[in-house]
Simulated scan of single mutants.
Amino acid sequence: MTTEPVAFNRLADLLSGMGERTRYQGGALRTRGICHGGDAPGTVAIRQGSSGVVVHCHKCNGNAAFLAAIGWTEADLFDQPLERTRDRPADDTWIPCRDRNHKRVAQYVYRDENKQTVHGVTRCDHKCFAQWRPATDTKTGRRWRLTDDHGNRLVRTVPYRLPELLQAKEADRVIWIAEGEKDVHALVDHGLHATCNAGGSGKWTAEHATFLAGADVTVVADRDEPGRQHALHVVATLKGIARSVYVVQALQGKDAADHFAAGHTDSEFNQVWAPMPYPGDPGAA
């Protein structure tokens, strides 16, 4: 009986989605070593194993750095979830929620200009969000905080899907800013170029804005007070940086995901206000 190579296919799809070139040679799927900055396309070999996928970087002589670069742990290499231990569930579903019955339903990896993993956000089925940074010295390959004991940030502040954002900017495309990763993917699924910050409303910073210098930007404001305030703040950081800024809201529902789920198109968002100059209040509902 042949078992479907679930993990192998998932990894191949992930690399394709990241824009990484792959090729088959010598019985393995081969790709470049993004774990050490990239080089020849055959440095990393990916093979189907008896219960999952086997990954080996010939330059790193292992898989830890490569897995960290793509936001995976050892547990993600298995076709089926690993057995639960007495201490915690398997790494591919575990999230540090107070309720251990919560399961991971989405994972969003934030990458830098070179497609290297900076940090990630893991979402559970009860809408909890946990941020992590790569850590090769832990069993999970992650540390579940982005700051040290004194509150100092240990990772860079980058917008979500930064490599794709930079490509879109180079092609002079409009960049859409949503409040969260789910809405970003709703926009991307409809052929748009979108980004956001980690942590939801109120967490956008001037550092995020610097990556949008000279771009035409459309901000999707959630239809509530936090969403309105978030949009105002995003616009303020883009003043004098972006070429133009529009603010829109969903025609139906609260956010971009609701808007598309209701069957509307990108041209049917409600425009809240037009480009610069920036008024003090968009009058968002």
Rank of each mutant, 00 (worst) to 15 (best):
M1G: 13
M1C: 13
M1E: 10
V6K: 12
A7Q: 05
F8M: 05
F8T: 06
R10H: 02
L11A: 06
G26I: 06
G27Q: 13
G27P: 10
R30S: 09
T31C: 06
R32M: 11
G37L: 12
D39I: 13
T43Y: 10
T43C: 11
V44Y: 05
I46A: 02
I46H: 01
V53S: 09
V54G: 15
V54M: 14
V55H: 08
C57R: 08
K59G: 14
K59T: 15
C60V: 09
G62Y: 04
G71F: 10
G71P: 06
G71V: 08
D76C: 09
F78T: 09
P81F: 00
L82P: 05
R84L: 15
D87I: 14
D91Q: 12
D91I: 09
D92S: 08
T93N: 12
W94D: 04
C97H: 08
R98M: 14
D99I: 07
D99P: 11
R100H: 13
H102L: 10
V105E: 09
Y108N: 04
E113L: 12
K115S: 15
K115R: 13
T117Q: 04
V118M: 09
H119D: 10
V121E: 14
R123P: 01
R123E: 05
C124L: 13
A130R: 11
A130Y: 13
A130C: 13
R133S: 07
P134T: 07
P134C: 10
T136S: 13
G141I: 01
R143H: 15
R145L: 09
R145D: 12
R145A: 12
L146T: 04
D148C: 10
D148S: 08
R161E: 07
L162A: 00
L166K: 03
L166S: 02
L166R: 02
I175C: 05
E181P: 04
D183W: 00
D183G: 03
D183P: 11
D183K: 01
D183E: 06
A186E: 01
V188Q: 00
D189K: 06
H190Y: 03
H193V: 00
T195S: 02
T195C: 01
C196M: 03
A198F: 00
G199K: 01
G200N: 00
S201M: 06
G202A: 01
G202M: 02
G202V: 04
T205W: 05
A206R: 09
A206G: 07
H208P: 00
L212A: 01
A213I: 09
A215H: 01
V217W: 03
V217Q: 02
T218Q: 07
T218C: 11
V220L: 02
V220Y: 08
V220S: 00
R223L: 02
P226R: 04
P226I: 06
R228V: 08
R228I: 14
A231L: 12
L232N: 14
H233G: 12
V234M: 08
T237L: 07
T237P: 10
G240N: 04
G240V: 02
I241G: 03
Y246F: 14
Y246H: 15
Q249L: 04
L251I: 05
Q252I: 14
A256L: 03
A256N: 02
A257V: 04
F260L: 03
A261P: 05
H264F: 03
T265G: 06
T265Q: 07
S267K: 10
F269H: 01
Q271K: 07
Q271S: 07
W273E: 00
A274R: 07
P275K: 08
P277H: 03
P277Q: 05
Y278T: 07
D281S: 03
A285Y: 11
